[in-house]
Amino acid sequence: MLQLAKEFSLHQEITVYEAGQLYGEIGKFRFLQFSDDAVQGAIDLKDPKRIVLEYPRAIIHLMECNHLLFDDVFVIGHGIGTIAGHYPNKSFTIAEIDEKVVELSRTFFNYRKDNVMVGDGRQMLENEAPQKFDYIILDAFTKEGTPFHLTTIDFFEMTKQKLNARGSIILNLMGKTKNDKLINAIYSTLKKTYAYSKVFVLPGANAVDIQNMIVIGSNKSIDYEQRAMAGFIEIELEEGHIIVDRKSGL
């Protein structure tokens, strides 16, 4: 594995690698990794337009299956810009807290769109017009996980106001399918806000493993085709507590 760059930002350690193997697949890959060793984005250098990771493939399917003619998307968490880059003719507004992530996406992953704003995604979304977006995608991580202020009922109620009648919110999360108080709380909080919701998991060895999850909330019924979900399967989570903003602030 070859290290191409390492940056220490105000928020985290960020590294870019090249490798001949990624998650068991042989090839030539370049990927962005945070200090918790989680891969935040990857490209196949032999086929740069191919979407390597399963979770963006599953998110893209949910977007196209539920609103094929969508136009406006707000994304919190840039990574290497995989989903926005996949749709050159759609309108994406992207919020990224870490300017180093944006710089590395341009230098090493050929991200060319001028649609990424550096700052807090919740604050930026609050300034957007009501009922503007077809989708809101939350793909934000720190070494502690998804930022707290992006998991509260106050936040989800605000996202509902920013979505149009056909709109949905899609979250990329990491957690356990059993006895995970935080994941259960995030999902229960979202369910209290949206009329319809589903959760999908990329199966691991067992229920105690940290696994990749995708959660979607909408005010209309949610459709998907299992064969197009890149290995993700629908599951049910346990009930959890409702997360609210801290009184002292976000």
Rank of each mutant, 00 (worst) to 15 (best):
M1E: 06
L2P: 05
L4Y: 08
K6L: 08
H11W: 15
K28F: 15
D37Q: 13
V39P: 07
I43G: 03
L45T: 08
K46P: 14
R50T: 05
I51S: 01
L53K: 07
E54Y: 09
Y55W: 03
R57M: 08
A58T: 05
I59P: 06
I60V: 12
I60L: 09
I60G: 05
L62S: 00
N66P: 03
L69Y: 15
D72E: 13
V73H: 01
V75P: 02
I76H: 04
G79L: 03
T82S: 06
Y87H: 04
I97K: 13
D98I: 01
E99Q: 11
E99A: 10
K100S: 13
E103I: 14
F109T: 01
F109S: 06
R112A: 03
R112T: 06
N115F: 04
V118Q: 03
R122Q: 01
M124L: 09
L125N: 01
A129W: 10
K132I: 03
I136L: 01
F148R: 09
L150G: 02
T151N: 11
F156A: 09
E157S: 14
K160T: 05
K162P: 07
A165V: 15
R166Y: 13
R166V: 06
R166S: 08
I169D: 02
N172P: 10
K176H: 13
N179K: 15
D180F: 15
L182N: 11
I183R: 14
N184M: 07
N184C: 11
A185E: 11
S188A: 10
T189E: 09
K191A: 05
F200M: 00
V201F: 06
L202G: 03
A205M: 11
V208Q: 07
I210Y: 14
V215Q: 06
I216W: 04
S218H: 00
S218M: 01
Q226P: 13
L237I: 06
E238F: 14
E239P: 14
I243P: 11
V244Y: 15
K247W: 14
L250Q: 09
